[in-house]
Design a protein around this nucleic acid. Structure first.
Lengths: 145, 145
DNA sequence: CTTGACAACAAGAATCATTCCTATATAATA
DNA sequence: TATTATATAGGAATGATTCTTGTTGTCAAG
């Protein structure tokens, strides 16, 4: 069964990092995997609750911090109001629209300037690139007015 | 007098943006100008209090939001615990050390990839680049151990 | 210079995302 | 299956930021 294979993969992924396998952790992992984009903590909480109604919000935060510290997920802090998390995938950056507050995934990796491993003698482990402005859709709306 | 000139410059700078000139705003502006790097809201609050002991923290937040929305200062959100502000100067990015929590100004502008004005049809007004890792000093300390 | 309208301010309460605390439940291991 | 350490649920605590209200100050017109 395919579904079993996926579960096995997730479990192995956790075990490799010495993360104890729990139903809550599997649900958080699956939620992030299924959507393949950034989700807010509350969105993750609600998705996990669908399968595990008694889960606690504090647990979601603890699991996400654990995953982040183990390099499984990346925290997106483009909007100071809310925190987002996403699977650690290919390098990309985020664009926040001042108007509609939507966050778009954008990719500047082709410019290769994000591949540097150090600057001024400081060792770079991670990079977050946040772009701000007016998105395509909101520009169109404004043009029509 | 030089000091008067500086004050006049700040006042003109505010008037150009239709920002009403008040003692509190002048103090916030001077604090940021004098240090020429990012300051936390609390640091700004304390510096303003030296000259105006009755100033309120809420006022500092309001002034910084006003300055930010008028493009006079830039908000630095590299550390989710604290907010920083700095004068809108030359383009640069920030580096947060995981160990000592210091924030360093770094400059990747020579790579020219931060000069793009749009991506995927979204109009770019601002860019924040946050680098994370271990700084020069902490690397040295670890090597000695 | 005085005055009036309206914005800015001080003080402190309220908000809300996130973290902390503790007793209970559960996963991993022998 | 028993043991031990860790994870979780539930709820309280934290703390940066925002909001509210009555007062004060700015600035422009007279």
């Amino acid at each position: 069964m395919i579904k079993t294979d996926v579960l096995l993969n997730i479990k192995n992924c956790l075990k490799e990092k010495d993360i104890k396998v729990t139903p809550q952790r599997l649900e958080v992992y699956k939620a992030l995997m299924n959507y393949d984009t950034h989700l807010s903590v509350e969105e993750i909480f609600n998705k996990v609750r669908e399968n595990n109604p008694s889960v606690s919000l504090g647990t979601i935060y603890a699991i996400l911090a654990n995953f982040r510290d183990n390099g499984l997920v990346k925290e997106v802090k483009i909007d100071s109001e809310r925190s987002f998390f996403e699977m650690q995938r290919d390098t990309h950056q985020h664009f926040l629209c001042y108007d509609c507050k939507n966050i778009y995934d954008v990719d500047f990796s082709k410019f290769s300037c994000f591949e540097h491993k150090s600057i001024d003698g400081h060792k770079i482990d991670d990079f977050h690139g946040y772009f701000y402005g007016i998105c395509k859709n909101c520009s169109k709306k404004k043009a029509k007015q």
